[in-house]
């Protein structure tokens, strides 16, 4: 009897850990950082981190959605870059065009990914791998390989603005996107379907869910968010470039995985992804602050991804 009770307690501890393990890691990281260098806790530095993670954070949220359905979207980087190019490229046509253009491009690119994946039953990895090359090529063609300099004055607040003179507007956008998507996931049928499709596409179909349509929308949403991130990027750097998003898909996948989203689909949260991106952001900030070259940063990011996946693996085993 005693034994059973003990088991129950340890299981509670286990679930507690699964839920908050990454948050704990984040807190530990935070404390370590502030012990190591006093610079870390300077408000300026913290706000820097908030800004640095905002763009990739928004991309990661889109990626999380896609991964929840059991898919993957490798084309977010080039979509972001194309979005950034469009902001700079469309500035002559007015700020509405420069703002809406990238969003429409991102949405359409994503919807196209989703359509090919569902209608032709091709693996998302392959489709978006191809799309990655296609959108990079489109961007290079559009820009003729050169950066397009300058973004509309009125849009620059998006990337450069500071609320109350201190808080980067980017960070506010990131948090807003996170909250909106989290609410959609949690409280709407669409959100529920996203988890259902990732958990069991066949059962979802037989439950009357239009699996294809939801999947297409999810990829559309991922593209839209990448396009939106492109706007922020372009207005932040005041330039559009075809290779701005290089490597971004990997960071976004890493953030989602560190945050506990299962690549098998069906489980994960936006909150987790936000934690994941914070872990990555804080770690690379710390390593920059203490003057460690990027080689070590890469080793660390890799380690964190692997450890996070190991934690997940333990969690998976337990629940079966």
């Amino acid at each position: 009897m005693e034994e059973i009770n003990n088991k129950k307690n340890s299981m509670h501890l286990g679930t507690y850990f699964e839920k908050y393990g990454m948050l704990l890691l984040l807190l530990v990281l935070f404390v370590i950082c502030s012990l190591i260098t006093p610079v870390f806790l300077k408000p300026g530095n913290l706000l820097n981190i908030a800004r640095q993670i905002s763009i990739i954070g928004i991309v990661s949220i889109g990626m999380t959605l896609v991964i929840l359905t059991g898919g993957i979207d490798l084309s977010v980087g080039p979509i972001l870059a194309c979005g950034a190019l469009l902001v700079a490229g469309l500035k002559e046509y007015g700020i509405v065009a420069a703002f809406v253009g990238p969003l429409i491009f991102g949405l359409c690119a994503g919807l196209l990914n989703g359509t090919v994946i569902t209608k032709f039953k091709v693996q998302p990895f392959i489709v978006t791998l191809g799309a990655m090359s296609i959108y990079t090529g489109l961007g290079l063609t559009y820009s003729k390989g050169h950066p397009i300099i300058g973004t509309p004055e009125m849009l620059r607040f998006i990337g450069q603005g500071k609320v109350f003179g201190v808080i980067p507007f980017q960070a506010i956008l990131f948090i807003s996107v996170a909250i909106i998507i989290a609410i959609i996931l949690k409280y709407t049928p669409f959100g529920r379907y996203t988890y259902a499709i990732g958990g069991n596409p066949e059962a979802s179909k037989l439950s009357g869910i239009n699996v294809d349509r939801v999947t297409i929308y999810i990829y559309g949403l991922s593209g839209l968010l990448a396009g939106f991130a492109g706007i922020i990027m372009a207005t932040h750097l005041n330039v559009g470039e075809a290779r701005l998003g290089t490597g971004m898909e990997m960071d976004a996948i890493a953030a989602a995985v560190i945050g506990g989203t299962s690549l098998k689909g069906g489980s994960g949260t936006i909150f987790g992804t936000v934690i994941g991106i914070l872990v990555i952001g804080i770690l690379s900030n710390l390593l920059n602050l203490i003057n460690v070259p990027s080689y070590a940063q890469m080793i660390f990011k890799g380690l964190i991804i692997v450890v996070a996946t190991v934690l997940q693996g333990l969690h998976d085993k337990k629940s079966v």
Partner: peptide, 13 residues
């Protein structure tokens, strides 16, 4: 398991 339920979701869901 493969067609009827979404195992990762709750009973309510």
């Amino acid at each position: 398991k493969s067609q009827g339920l979404i195992l990762g979701l709750t009973i309510r869901e």
